[in-house]
Every structure is written in C-alpha cells, then in structure tokens.
C-alpha cells in the first residue's frame, strides 16, 4: 500500500513531535518546541493565504492579538472558561477578517500589503491605548486554563513546559491536517487557480472574490488560535503580539520555509523560532547573523528552504 503525501507529511510531523523529547537535554526545550508549534500553526494559516491563494497580508498579527486578548478578557469580563474564550476569539477573528477582508482583498500586491498592515496597526494601537480594558503597553495577565490540573486528575503529571509542548503539538497536527485537506479540496483547487491568474480563474467561472475571502478568513482563524495558545501558555498578553513586527515575522517564516507547502512553512517557523536561541552564542552579533541567514536562504533557496532542499535531494538522488 502506498501512503498519500498528505499521510506521510502528517505521520512524519507527528513522529517528530513525539520523538524529539527523547533528545531534549532539559525541559527548556519543551518551551522552544511549544513556541515552534504555535508559530507553525499561525504560518500554516498563512500558507493557505499566501501559498495557496497568492495574497499577501502584513496584518495577521492583528488576528493573533485578537485570539490572545480574547483569552485574557473573556474569562475576566464574561466569566467564560479560557478555552471557550479561545473559541470566541477564533469566531471573532473570523468575523473581523470577513468584514475587513471584503473591501481590502480587492487590492493587489503592495496595496493589499499596506491595507492589511493598516488593519494590524489599528488592532495593536487599540490594545496599547485602551489601558482600562487591555492593561496598556505592559499587557494583562491571563487566568490559568486549568488544563494541566485536569490532566493531573487523570493521573498524568506533566511540567508546565511539557504540557504545553504536547498540547500545542496536538493542535498543530490538527491544523496541518485541515490545511492539507483543504489543498486537495475544490476550494483548494480554486485558490491555486486564482493564484496562477485571477483573470484566467474568473474566466473559467471561479468566484475569485469569494475564494480569496475564504482564504483570508481561514488564515485569520489559524492566527487567532495560535495567539490564544500563546496567551494561555504565557499567562500574559501584550500589544506587541499584534504588532507590525510580529506580522512581518510570520510572513518571513512562511516564505523562508516555502510559502506553498505546509511542512515547508512549519520548517520556516521552526528555524526562525529556534534561531534566536542558537544565535545567543554570538551575543551582540545576533541580529547581524539573523539578517545574514535570512538573506542567504532567500538568495540560494529562492522557492523557500523545503522546496529548494527537496529539489536538490531529488536532483542528486535521481
């Protein structure tokens, strides 16, 4: 029996997540792992938007922020359980993405980039300015979701970092599964068609505006869930989660790894999340090295790391 590429990707992803802890010298690595999974989830959403549909967004951190702040505010003001708050955040992000996406997705290229950037900046600004609600620039604490305690009730006692490693890993696999399914669905095909050429897609009867909006909404929900996971793990949310730099970072992860492929983007997330930890040995040269790595990867692997590596291996291996 031959496994589909989708099954192989998911299998390997799950395997890596499950086996990697065997090589962890300390529990700190669980923390890095969970951050990789959170970023991986956000960029999986961007693969749908950038890789499948060919649209750019420099404002997705805004949705990340909405998901994060939902987990801080909904439990405190609405009495919701933090996990339900994450769901609320995802729904809210979806609705906001629908409302914002409808007008701005008519724009193309850099104009779409600056419009989405404007949206992200507005979200970050509200979060920083409305201190009575959001705690201002220094952020606000998030209630303990109690998931770890729940697990302990079943006799599984994990450290904080271990728990979040497992939980975020699980959500990432789920997210990747959904994204890969979407790729092969009629929606996925329509998105790839309009990525190739909007005019051509329209000619063959694809409702371009609707599919673009779908991709925008789906990717916003991914970013929102990722934001919620980070909020619940860190127990603190700050406005820079929604900031311009974070949006840029997410797009960079996606493109660096390979915008058109889910495993590629997750690899990009893994590298850009782990890299600052590795680069600490360079101390003050850290930023310089980070910039250098980004440039070198894009110069020599212009399709992104994973697709380029794959081509290289295929070429050598015959």
């Amino acid at each position: 029996m031959r496994l589909s590429t989708k099954a192989v990707t998911l299998l390997v992803l799950s395997l890596v997540i499950a086996v990697a802890p065997l090589f962890f010298p300390s529990t700190f690595y669980y923390r890095v792992g969970s951050l990789i999974f959170i970023n991986g989830l956000a960029v999986t959403g961007l693969v749908i938007l950038i890789g499948y549909a060919g649209q750019i967004s420099l404002g997705h951190a805004g949705f990340f922020g909405i998901g994060a702040y939902a987990c801080a505010l909904a439990p405190a003001h609405l009495g919701l359980h933090p996990v339900l708050a994450a769901v609320l955040g995802a729904v809210l992000s979806g609705v906001v993405a629908y409302v914002v996406g409808k007008p701005i997705l008519r724009l193309k290229g850099y104009y779409l980039a600056v419009a989405s950037l404007g949206f992200g900046v507005l979200v970050a600004m509200v979060l920083a300015n409305e201190a009575w609600l959001t705690g201002g620039p220094d952020g606000i604490a998030v209630a303990d979701p109690g998931l770890r305690a729940l697990l302990r009730g079943f006799g599984v006692d994990l450290s904080n970092a271990q728990f979040w490693y497992g939980f975020c890993g699980l959500v990432l696999v789920l997210g990747a599964w959904l994204a890969l399914n979407l790729y092969h669905s009629p929606t996925g095909r329509a998105l790839r068609a309009l990525h190739g050429s909007e005019v051509a897609a329209r000619t063959v009867g694809v409702d371009v505006a609707r599919y673009k909006l779908n991709a925008f909404v789906i990717s916003a929900v991914y970013a929102s869930v990722a934001g919620s996971l980070l909020a619940l793990q860190n127990r603190l949310v700050t406005p820079d989660m929604a900031g311009f730099m974070h949006s840029i970072e997410m797009v960079t992860m996606t493109v660096l790894g390979g915008a058109a492929s889910v495993p590629g983007a997750i690899l990009g997330a893994a590298i850009l999340t782990a890299l600052p930890q590795v680069l600490t040995v360079f101390q003050e040269y850290e930023q310089l090295m980070l910039g250098l790595v980004m440039m070198l990867v894009m110069i020599f692997m212009r399709q992104g790391l994973l697709p380029s590596l794959a081509r290289l291996l295929r070429g050598r291996g015959g």
Partner: peptide, 22 residues
C-alpha cells in the same frame, strides 16, 4: 537572486534591514 519571486526579494530586503541594523 534575480528571477526569484518578488516576495522572496522582499524577504531579502527585510533580512538586509536586520543585517544593517545589527
């Protein structure tokens, strides 16, 4: 990087910006 997609070129300029800052 000539011939690379525009989005890759943009990431290069972002990398350059971080590099120059560093």
């Amino acid at each position: 990087a000539r011939g690379a997609p525009v989005v890759s070129l943009i990431i290069i300029t972002i990398g350059a910006s971080i590099f120059i800052r560093g």
